[in-house]
Design a protein around this nucleic acid. Structure first.
Lengths: 197, 197
DNA sequence: ACACAAAACTAACATTTGTTAGTTTGAAAA
DNA sequence: TTTTCAAACTAACAAATGTTAGTTTTGTGT
């Protein structure tokens, strides 16, 4: 799967470096606890120099979060129109989340915890995208229940259980010394779908 | 189940109010983005007046997080020594998490996202407690696998899947208009243990 | 060698931050 | 009534914050 974090040349290479370093700091302490001086120090330059490349601290956050949100939305859309049973689509969604986790674990932290500190407009757009994403996921689960492929349980509980596992996977993927991606996918799909008994 | 958030009279009633209001704000924006003036305003007093009751902003966080961490540790310990199969213990753990979520959803946010902003000593103690908690959980899962009660899957993946679902439950419990606790427990146990197919 | 642009720098700014010191208020105890 | 004390207040602090303005450095193409 191809995961382009931003369209070509939308940002200068230096800007991309800053965003990368910043996202790493954001993951450790959260957006609000990271100062522009922290980011500058990580880059080996002075705080004021950052402003040759970025417009504001908030802009870094917005680029991080909104780019990743679009990645999720695009992924969901292509899975939606793909052929396959609901269960196979859920499998694809799980694999997509794992791919994104492996490639963008830093940005995932910001998306999960710091989206509310973006400028108002982006917050609105973000929440809309997230709701649409969840609604699509919910529909797939309901289809699976209707077709008898999935046990007739509260769809909300299934949705929540899968999504919260996938959304916090980035926390574990770093701690547990980088498990092999394919092994992780296999085990994760098995546990989430077939359960443990 | 009895959930005492702090031992009797360790804090004055006014202090408890402050901690409650603060935890509500922490949940919305995170510890670092909440100022003592925000907390004061929520209390209807001036910022300086807070310091008649608390020692520092950090102290509020520490009380919140460490009290809740002890609650989890105590709960785990009493389940560990209880009689029952590993699977029954896991069921009890799930129910404990749900009880805590319902009663202390605010503090859970701080415990999940803001523990690293406590004073150094508390961070060390906290991480120790969390590691012990996870290790105990892991052992129960492994026992279940050995006894054949649980499918022979990567225990780490099972542990992670259950824990991340339970740890972020507080986010959904507020959004989805307060589901009935007993229904939630039943469905949650079913989905997490038996899976969806 | 020179011009130009990118990207660094220094210095400063207006706010915001957590916190302290000292004072006033109001209600209960004496 | 007077004393007392918790809990509010005002005023101010030093430090930290995001950001701007103006200047110097650095490297590249002519």
């Amino acid at each position: 799967m191809l995961l382009l974090s931003c369209s070509i040349m939308k940002h200068s290479s230096r800007k991309v470096e800053i965003i990368a370093k910043a996202s790493h700091l954001f993951k450790e302490k959260g957006y609000s606890a990271v100062t522009v001086r922290d980011i500058a120090q990580a880059m080996g330059i002075k705080a004021a120099s950052l402003y040759n490349h970025i417009q504001s601290k908030q802009e870094i956050l917005s680029v991080l979060v909104m780019d990743l949100a679009r990645t999720f939305t695009d992924g969901m859309n292509s899975i939606l129109v793909s052929k396959g049973t609901p269960l196979q689509k859920i499998e694809s969604l799980i694999e997509m989340h794992i791919d994104i986790t492996v490639n963008q674990s830093e940005a995932l932290a910001a998306l999960n915890n710091d989206w509310m500190h973006m400028p108002e407009d982006d917050v609105v757009a973000f929440v809309r995208m997230r709701e649409a994403y969840e609604e699509n996921f919910r529909k797939i689960i309901k289809q699976g229940i209707e077709s008898g492929e999935i046990k007739p349980r509260h769809p909300e509980v299934i949705l929540f259980s899968i999504l919260s596992t996938l959304r916090t996977l980035y926390l574990w993927y770093q701690k547990r010394g980088k498990l092999d991606v394919n092994v992780l996918k296999r085990d994760m799909v098995a546990v989430l779908i077939e359960g443990m008994v």
